[in-house]
Computed example of a mutant assay.
Amino acid sequence: MTEKWLEWAQQIQSTAQAGLTFSKDKFDLKRYRQLLELSAEIMSSYSSTSMSTVMDLFHKEEGYQTPKIDARAVIFKENKILLVREKVDGKWALPGGFADVGVSLTENVIREVEEETGYRASYKRLIAVLDYLKHPHPPQPYHYYKFFLECDVTGSPADQTLETSDVQFFERNGLPELSLNRNTKSQIDLLFQYLNNPFKQPYID
């Protein structure tokens, strides 16, 4: 579902990143740097992001380009799902975020739940692994895989945290405005298919 211009730019960026990682020839390295700049120019031209900002993002990348991991917690209670209000845009999302290096997937999710909600979480099962590009998210410079892990929680929610300003459970037909960079309505609908359905197999794109 990604825009074609973004798909092309991501492919050019990935090729350039691989070339800069493995090439030793100074002329090839120059060409790969030009490809990286071309990718940034495409992204900047078709979005509201400046080329310098895109290049700053690219310069933070090292090594062979691979998809990034976004890990989200799925927490049900009384036929409702737990969402947090993001301070950055005032919209709602499943607790979670990008996985950190040196920490397992479940450890990442458990930590994010506690930091963003105040609840103490424990891993229950894997529900879905989705490709960001196959879902109606806004354009992003990188390619992401989104992992959705069902968790159980105990304790009480926090009034607010460093990243979130509210924590609530919502019914399937009463969802608030979602932060579409993080999760979409169709993804929440998919997750609700796992409510009270312990034997349903994980959905993987």
Rank of each mutant, 00 (worst) to 15 (best):
L38E: 14
L36W: 02
M51E: 08
R33V: 14
F22M: 08
S52A: 12
D25S: 12
I42G: 05
S45T: 09
S48I: 12
S50H: 07
K24F: 00
A40I: 04
S47I: 03
S23D: 03
S47D: 03
S50K: 08
R31N: 10
Y32N: 03
R33C: 07
S44R: 02
M43G: 02
S23K: 04
S44M: 07
S50V: 14
A40R: 00
L20C: 02
E41G: 13
L35F: 11
I42R: 05
Y46M: 06
T49Q: 11
L29V: 14
L38D: 12
T53W: 09
S52E: 10
S52R: 10
K30F: 05
Y46S: 04
S50D: 09
S47N: 05
S47C: 05
R33L: 13
S44V: 05
T21F: 03
Q34I: 12
L20A: 03
T53D: 06
T49F: 13
R31L: 04
Y46F: 14
M51L: 08
I42E: 09
L38A: 15
S50A: 02
L35E: 06
L20G: 03
S50I: 07
I42Q: 08
S23W: 00
F27E: 10
S44Y: 02
R31V: 10
S39N: 01
Y32W: 07
S50P: 05
D28E: 14
Y46V: 02
F22S: 08
K30T: 13
E41D: 13
S44I: 04
L20Q: 01
E37T: 14
A40Q: 00
S23E: 01
M51V: 15
D28G: 11
M43L: 12
M51C: 15
S39R: 01
M43H: 04
Y32L: 08
L29H: 03
A40M: 03
S50C: 13
L20H: 02
Y46L: 07
L35N: 10
A40N: 03
Y32K: 02
S52N: 11
